[in-house]
Design a protein around this nucleic acid. Sequence first.
DNA 1: GATTTAATTGACCGATAGGTCAAAATTCAG
DNA 2: CTGAATTTTGACCTATCGGTCAATTAAATC
Lengths: 205, 205
Amino acid sequence: MPNRRPKTRIQQKNSEAILEAALEVFSQAGFRGATLDQIAERAGLSKPNLLYYFPSKEAIHAELIKGLLQVWLDPLRALDAGGDPLAEILGYMRRKLELSRDFPRESRLFANEVLQGAPRVEGALQEELKPLVDEKAAVIGAWVQAGRLAPVDPHHLIFSIWATTQHYADFDVQVRAVLGPGHDPFAEAERFLTTLYTGSLCPRG
Amino acid sequence: MPNRRPKTRIQQKNSEAILEAALEVFSQAGFRGATLDQIAERAGLSKPNLLYYFPSKEAIHAELIKGLLQVWLDPLRALDAGGDPLAEILGYMRRKLELSRDFPRESRLFANEVLQGAPRVEGALQEELKPLVDEKAAVIGAWVQAGRLAPVDPHHLIFSIWATTQHYADFDVQVRAVLGPGHDPFAEAERFLTTLYTGSLCPRG
DNA sequence: GATTTAATTGACCGATAGGTCAAAATTCAG
DNA sequence: CTGAATTTTGACCTATCGGTCAATTAAATC
């Protein structure tokens, strides 16, 4: 059994291939719907060989979730209390939208997990997500108090940014089916969401 | 095998029990993750008995989706070209949010399906969803043209309403984990979304 | 080049998946 | 009450699931 941290080139390569394949399969079928055989085939390995690198299906999934959560929270971490309120929020929206555009499988993996009751990430939600959101919600709340933002509920503002941006990754099929060909959903979304949030967040006498 | 339309009381009762159980299981585990044994147990029937009423797992799922799509599209159908633009859009948002509150399992069933590539509903998206959305988007576009709404992309406005309202059903676990106890997510969401859309849709000189 | 170590595999395991079927139990019609 | 139709079930089928293991092959080390 290989050590925790891959050492050899071959371990590095195969571990990456497995995680890449698992991301594809898990994000498309959910945890229960995904099979080790599918993952193994996509990774170009036999199933026993796959289980030589990871002890179980759960372990592969856990590794993916672990690596994902950090990346997923980064845009919110970057929200700066010292910046211009509207610019900060629009910047957060934009970074979140870019994640949806560039890492749709990661978004769907997470969506699948939460949608099915988050049995394997509930702890992380409580211990990592909630504190960070509370902190940044307080920042936004302070902006509102100072009259630098129109009065809105900070938590639900954050929810709406999650919802609207992740929608373009998670419901990509539906978005494209409705728009038809000849559209760039993400580019259009950026314009729309900019006007949406600018319009409702600008403070008015 | 029972006829297409349930006739006897017992057929009526069991068919309903099966669909109710299947909704619970499919919405929580996705199609592949759900099992006939789980559905049968929840419905209080044996597996062979379940398969006496529906020919296959696919058939149960298809029946659910069929019944769901109509209900799901009703709020958009009710959007009235003759009404007040902002009130109509807020009303649509509110009806959609009520669906999320009262039928979260249906929302998750649909989300699961689309998330996993919509293999069983892609046709319905093209043939039912797209025409309806295009029609209503045209209505909104006309309002914008007439200067009765701030200039926004109608399709993406509809997407954002879907995203923000369904978020509270589909990501319920996450929303509650972040908010903590003592919150009514749907009531708060209604207030927030009202200000969000009012703020950005009101036309200004 | 030999030997040790890492990597790979085919065969296999018990559990569970969706589904079938003939027979038994129940309900219904006359 | 009786016979026909409906409903229910236990036993069973094949395929696939996650996972194991001993044996084989390929790499790295000396």
